[in-house]
């Protein structure tokens, strides 16, 4: 069977399963209950994208700083990186978000929960970002640097024409993977009443009690972002990988 047909069939299989699940609910599932709540879901959807994007940019900055710290010649800074990374690896994202909003934020007089929630997300992703910077830069071999020196490229030329173009290509797929992680992780911000997609679904639920409709709609909206993203990563890897 060819590739397209098999994929089509697999998609139909999942759709069939969903239809079966929807048809077998105790009370009939009526998608018309969504009427009047489109704006609510749209707002949640857009906020999820915006918050995730902020967290992506923020964690790229902090991740790069942590990468520099981990490369420092000072033992103290490298130790800081090790300890920080261990702490983050040992902490569930939900716990990190709660600690940020209710423990660390208030200690600094910050009571804005969305801000602290997104900060928690940024802090949580930081070591993962550090890792992708580390692996991207380390993929440029010492011999390449020797060749650059030999030909007499200036520092600017090395970065502009040789290092950055390679790093970007190596960085993109894992970066987009992390973006996907952030989008999915941002659902946890609902515990802080941040008006993202999961929270929109909770409001919809509390007003209509159409649980199944709300959950399926939310699910589909997440998938609308994440699946094209992962497809883009694959395309990028095929087209641009080194």
């Amino acid at each position: 069977m060819n590739k397209f047909l098999s994929h089509l069939l697999a998609v139909l299989l999942f759709l069939g399963f969903m239809v079966f699940v929807v048809m077998n609910q105790a009370t009939p599932v009526r998608f018309e209950r969504l009427e009047g709540y489109g704006g609510l879901f749209l707002e949640g959807f857009i906020n999820t994208v915006i918050f995730s994007f902020i967290a992506l940019i923020g964690s790229m900055v902090t991740g790069f700083l942590l990468f520099l710290i981990s490369k420092s010649k000072y033992q103290l800074l490298r130790a800081f990186d090790t300890i920080f990374t261990e702490i983050i690896y040992g902490t569930p994202l939900l716990v990190m978000i709660m600690i940020m909003a209710f423990v660390i934020g208030p200690a600094f007089n910050v009571f804005n929960r969305p801000v602290m929630g997104i900060t928690g997300l940024i802090v949580y992703i930081t070591p993962y970002m550090k890792n992708i910077f580390r692996s991207s830069f380390s993929s440029i071999t010492e011999e390449q640097f020797m060749a650059m020196d030999l030909f007499g490229f200036t520092s600017y030329q090395k970065y502009r024409y040789i290092i950055i173009p390679q790093v970007v290509r190596i960085l993109m797929p894992p970066l987009m993977n992390n973006f996907s992680l952030i989008i999915k992780g941002s659902a946890l911000l609902n515990v802080l009443s941040v008006r993202e997609l999961f929270y929109a679904q909770s409001i919809f639920h509390s007003r209509t009690f159409a649980t199944v409709v709300g959950l399926i709609t939310m699910w589909m909206l997440y998938i609308i972002i994440t699946i094209p993203l992962s497809q883009f990563i694959r395309y990028f890897e095929r087209r641009w990988s080194l």
Binding site: T141, E143, Q144, M146, A147, L150, I162, P165, Q166, R169, L242
Partner: peptide
């Protein structure tokens, strides 16, 4: 001119 063990061309 220098030729390295592995070709060492810029891969991109």
């Amino acid at each position: 001119g220098f030729v390295f063990q592995s070709h060492n061309l810029f891969p991109h």
